[in-house]
Structure formats: C-alpha cells, structure tokens
Amino acid sequence: MNPQQDTHPEAFNVNADSSELGQTREKDPAIVTRTLAAPFVVRAKGLKKIYKMGEETVHALNGVDFNVKRGEYISIMGPSGSGKSTLFNMIGGLDKPNEGRIYIDDVDIASLDTLELAWLRCHKIGYIFQSYNLIKVATALDNVMLPMTFAGKQQAEAQDKAVYLLEQVGLGDRVLHKPLEMSGGQQQRVACARALANDPSIVLADEPTANLDSKTGEEIINLLREINEKQNVTIITATHDHKMLAVSDRIAWVRDGRMDRIQERADIKITKGEMHGI
C-alpha cells in the first residue's frame, strides 16, 4: 500500500508539456491524471445546481468556487438546506452540476460516462456515511473486501489487505463479526477500513459522527486524522460536529448555495465548549 505513489507530483511530469496537454485532455482524462498531479485534488469552478421540485426551482448551488489541496483535512460546514450535501455529492462523483466544472484529480466529472464514474468511485474515492451503510448480511471482512472485488483484485490478496486494514482501525479481533454484532463506533471503523480498501486519493465522510455519542465520535475523528496523516489521504467531511473543527486544516462554510468563507484552523480559536471567530 503506497498512496504516495499517486500523490507525488514528480512522478507524473513525463508528459506535462503544456503544448501536449490540450490534445491529451481530449484523448483521455486518465492520461491527464497521470501527467498533471496538481496540488489540488478537487477543483470546482462556478458550480450551479438547480433542482425542480414541482413548479418551484431550487438553486441548491449558486456558483461555488472551491479547491481542496492534496493531503489536507477539510470540513464543509453549513446548516441543512445550505447546499452542503449537494456540493459534497458532487465532490464524490455522485451528482453532476448543471453549470460549472468540477475536477477530481484533474478529471472533469461531467465528461465521464457511467462506467468511468464507477471506476472513479471505486479507485479514487472512499466513502464514509452517516449511517455506516455496511452490507448488513456480510461480515466486516467481506464488507472491506467488497470494493476490492469490484476493482478486480484477487480474492487472497483482497483478504490479506482487508484483514490488515481492519487491524489498522483496531478491529483485528472482530474480522468475522457482522455489522449488527458491533457497536456504532465499531461499524464506523469498518466503514473507515472499507473506504481505504482501494487506496483512494480522497476519503469523503458525510456526517461520520452524527449517529455516534460524543466520545465514540471523537475516536472516529481521531482515526480519520490518523488516516489523513499516516497515509496522506485527503479527507473531506461534511459535518455539524464542532469537535471536527479542532482537527481540520481548513473549514469551508457553505451558506445559501454559496461558499461563505474558508478558514484556516489557525484562524479559529477553540476554547472549552465555546468557539470564537465563527
């Protein structure tokens, strides 16, 4: 497992000649990915998303510009209805914008067909959900192996890696347990292991602590931070949890379909139970 292989800019300069770029981009987004490992793992420009609900049109996103640096831990905060989830889904390749562009690893999401999107989700992005979303009937091991099966990995190899990942998240003794035999915190740990299965560039965590008590939530947050630091994986979370702010490198505030402001952690002073500068 060496995620840095994918993240070192030097490794990809082979064809980075700008005159060739225009051509390559048309030919194959995957080549561009390799030739152009930019400092930003996600780039969004002028994102707009309009939903039609009956007669009404809802502007979920109203021109959002947003960049995520490679290897950073960024939290997206915002009240419900702010467009936070929509933005989040677009970063995850689960939704496409009506207007504007979003690049993940320099690949324009809008240019991908279903097959390519499935590939992107499988290899580039790891998902962690609020309600864990483990396959209930499968063991922890099978849950972690699933994305590797989709990626076409050999059974034995996938199994070894799944066991390794489960040990990393502290569940080495619960490999064969099913989700319902585990606590919420343990299930979320399995979800973290599953998210890392295919060495993604990005781990997307959607309210990962919302269903957990404060202490367990903190453990998951620390685990995410650990993953972020040890494996140099970019972590993007959507959250209401103020504990998350303490570990985030940056916090993006979404309001009314716009990027309200983006703060560095240093700009936020956190004292006991209270926050200033927000």
């Binding site: 995850g92 689960l94 279903t114 097959l115 499935a118 590939w119 989700r121 499988c122 290899h123 998902y127 959900f129 979303n133 483990l134 396959i135 209930k136 699933l146 994305p147 989709f150 990626a151 599953r194 295919n198």
Partner: peptide, 16 residues
C-alpha cells in the same frame, strides 16, 4: 435499495 446505493458508491457497475 440502500445496499445497492452503497455498492454503487463502492464502484459496482449497473450490469453487476
């Protein structure tokens, strides 16, 4: 449905 959605997020193809 939920299980299917999860599998699609993990990279399952429509055909699968």
């Amino acid at each position: 449905f939920r299980e299917i959605g999860t599998m699609k997020c993990l990279g399952a193809l429509t055909g699968f």
